[in-house]
Design a protein around this nucleic acid. Structure first.
Lengths: 206, 206
DNA sequence: GACAGAAGTTACCGCCGGTAACACACTAGC
DNA sequence: GCTAGTGTGTTACCGGCGGTAACTTCTGTC
């Protein structure tokens, strides 16, 4: 980036870049703002952070929902992949359960703001944003339902039951995460154990 | 509400009422609009439905968050009372579990729009609205934690575990409700059974 | 009848998401 | 060298939102 590049203009005036921003750069900026200001971040603020103005954002993402979906998609696939890996790894069922919960809780603990954005404020005011981003939780539930059906070798007629359990478990981990993030009465490993216990039937046996 | 009240003025001119609206009347109107237009209902629309203008709403409720909290409070107490009754009724633990889940699902099935407002769009865009109305789920969890601690006769050191379970179970029922509302693969009683099975440890035994 | 005070109004503020219309840089072709 | 075209960027605007200030109108009381 010094002053020696011959073919390209040496260094654009610092205040104003001319070349096109890549989609990734825009998303980086948007993510910074969302993580700083929360999901109520305005398009103006995001544009300013990216060093551009609003209409460019709209040219790239269509509307705010589009930007949020793009933002969420960058992380959802990663998390889903980790969950699938946890659900199919060798070992005992209990180990798979704990591994899946732990994958989730690592995200929650590592980036609470990102977590909140993904699972909560994705559900924003507008129905469009809500419906398109609520897919997140739905996809988690579907993936888990497949995992449960495989784990228990359920026949097809029992799949709806597995789905109910799966979506319930996703909500369970999510709600427990929310509560735990605020209260923090114990560490992550303990929460993993408690939730795995509950799924394992510790309440029923108690 | 008939026409026989003698002490109060018999019937105000229909087009324009002069006397002060009661808080309950305002909340009735707000509820109608919220259930019709969803939680993104504007203060203008609510005021129009009530036959007044915006500043009056603000005089009564302070801000939008205040109105939403007042709206939610009218139903939260009812639901909490039903849940407490279910959790303390005589019979087997399984019966209490099913009764509590059923109390929730009856609300979900009976007034899906109201349910969505309470548990989802209470979490609106503004942090103030979110924080004050998210208390809803928190209160449910706390009530359930007390119920679990009593049910299992847990000593105080084990309360955090009961809390984790309780908040998890609340999220579980809520997420399963959401999924069920859209998919409806079986009836309410079946969902009640599936969820009670899960809490009872059916997955662990399977 | 005068008056305090509540009830209700109009008119405004700043900000939001979203868009139209215009300005500037670069490249291509002649 | 000049023009045309394309894409990048801008400024300036729209309607509607939550929220408020200031004014008017009605009602009850002495």
């Amino acid at each position: 980036m010094a002053s020696s590049a011959p073919a390209t203009p040496p260094a654009p005036p610092p205040a104003r870049r001319r070349g096109p921003r890549t989609r990734a750069e825009l998303l980086d900026a948007a993510e910074r703002v969302v993580l700083r200001d929360g999901p109520a971040a305005s398009m103006n603020a995001i544009a300013a952070e990216a060093g551009i103005t609003k209409p460019i954002l709209y040219r790239h993402f269509g509307d705010k929902a589009g930007l949020y979906v793009a933002l969420a998609d960058r992380h959802i696939e990663t998390l889903l992949e980790r969950l699938r890996a946890a659900l199919t790894r060798p070992g005992t069922r209990r180990e798979r359960t704990e591994a899946a919960i732990d994958a989730w809780l690592r995200l929650v603990e590592g980036s609470p703001a990102l977590y909140r954005f993904l699972v909560h404020r994705g559900q924003a005011e507008e129905p469009q944003v809500r419906d398109r981003v609520a897919v997140f939780q739905r996809r988690l539930g579907d993936a888990l339902a497949a995992g449960i059906a495989a784990e228990l070798a359920l026949p097809e007629p029992q799949w709806p039951r597995a789905q109910a359990w799966a979506h319930g478990i996703v909500g369970m981990v999510q709600a427990a995460s929310d509560w735990w993030l605020d209260a923090r009465p114990f560490d992550r490993a303990a929460l993993t154990r408690h939730l795995a216990d509950l799924i394992d039937g510790a309440y029923g046996r108690a």
